[in-house]
């Protein structure tokens, strides 16, 4: 079972580099291109959320991934404000352009692309875990 871990300070450039490293690792582990893209996107969206809404973008976050036969499972630990991504309001993606809200899309993508999404806080860290199916 291939495993990837990394520490990151969630700044924009670092998030981009991490998404590249994750993609390289997953491709090397034989994961299909679509799942590679989904994992990179989910990590990017969760870390972008930590960077923009977490309140402490200079505190490091940790990422761990495991490649399993039918899925990629991941865990992100961050020290930002407590936030359960599962409770984020769902944006109305059918609204006409005038009424279309521009927020909330990132977590909408995360919920859509993951087959499992869990969250817990241990008082100092947020732990977001997810699974993304391989195809």
């Amino acid at each position: 079972m291939a495993r990837f871990t990394a520490d990151i300070t969630p700044h924009p450039e670092a998030i981009g580099r991490l998404a590249d490293d994750v993609s390289d690792f997953l491709r090397g582990a034989g994961v299909d291109a679509r799942a590679v893209h989904h994992v990179a996107l989910v990590i990017e969206e969760i870390l972008t959320n930590v960077a923009t809404h977490g309140g402490c973008p200079d505190l490091p976050a940790t990422i761990a991934l495991e490649v399993r036969q039918d899925r990629v499972s991941g865990e992100i630990g961050d020290q930002g404000r407590s936030f359960d991504p599962r409770t984020a309001p769902t944006p109305d993606i059918d609204a006409p352009i005038d009424e279309r809200q521009i927020g909330g899309l990132g977590l909408h993508l995360v919920k859509h692309l993951t087959s499992a999404l869990e969250y817990r806080s241990d008082g100092t860290q947020n732990w977001t875990t997810f699974c993304i199916p391989r195809t």
């Binding site: 998404a19 893209h37 990179a40 996107l41 990017e44 972008t48 521009i102 927020g103 899309l105 990132g106």
Partner: peptide, 9 residues
Amino acid sequence: TFLASIGVR
């Protein structure tokens, strides 16, 4: 090569 929600926004 990669589009995130912030790009869609």
